[in-house]
Design a protein around this nucleic acid. Structure first.
Lengths: 143, 143
DNA sequence: CAGGATCCTTTCAGATACTG
DNA sequence: CAGTATCTGAAAGGATCCTG
């Protein structure tokens, strides 16, 4: 499922269409901000600025773009109330709520393994680098 | 960001440390290439170029970077065989295999809902844009 | 309040060349 | 084979200003 190269004639393409489709969905779902928006909308509908406040670090621009993408994919509904000041509510669709289950499983996994990963990182970072070598307990610096 | 708990009103930063940690993990896991590498390693250990061939569209550089990140997080092991030519095997760790379950659930979801999303996109893209308005069945172009 | 439009900087990622 | 190093164009993303 090459994205943009010339496919050689004769190259086997099992079911390239499905692969690309699945891939595109994963690209969206695997997106950092999408994930945050979805989990935040778990608690029910939110207004634009509520989302912005609850999703720490997101800019107004990225929130808009992310919401548009999710809306386009049918995962989120956008409801405009023509009041002054305007009010726009975002809510998960039925499809969006089905996505919640696998996504929350992922979040739960992350929550649970925070410690283990932090320790793995510490070990990795303390490994002797190519600039160093530890020989019989003595550290040598590469010249 | 309140991914896994509710923020009490009035408490500005409940336990930001845990949130940020979870967030970092999600950032890695939600990464496009990480997801592909993990699912590809589901079938057992792979060599570098095997991964490169099976993950279509990934560059050698991104594969290296992704593998380093996963190795650092303790999700993948890297085994070097000092042969000529060299051989390096990558394999999911125990921790990495526990990640497989939520990740595969996500992939299954994407697979299952490809059609629904494609239709939602089609509907969205056919909606009258701000440049157009449909009034009583007649389409007007904004000037 | 909820964005759209711009500008502008930073980061990402592909292509290429080189190495043990 | 399995990388590392470097360069560069493309893209992401933040900051800011403006409007219905």
């Amino acid at each position: 499922m090459s994205l943009s190269h010339t496919d050689l004639p004769g190259s086997p393409k099992p079911n390239e269409r499905d692969c690309q489709a699945t891939r595109k969905i994963l690209d969206r779902v695997a997106d950092k901000w999408s994930l945050y928006v979805i989990t935040t909308l778990q608690g029910g509908s939110r207004r634009f600025n509520e989302l912005k406040r609850e999703i720490d670090g997101i800019s107004q621009r990225m929130l808009t773009l992310t919401l548009r993408g999710l809306e386009r994919d049918g995962l989120v509904t956008r409801t405009v109330f023509p009041t002054i000041p305007p009010r726009v509510d975002y809510e998960l669709t039925e499809l969006g709520r089905t996505l919640l289950e696998p996504v929350m499983a992922l979040v739960a996994w992350a929550d649970k393994n925070t410690q283990a990963i932090a320790e793995a990182q510490r070990r990795f970072d303390e490994e002797p680098k190519p600039e160093q070598a530890t020989i019989q307990g003595v550290v040598y610096q590469r010249l």
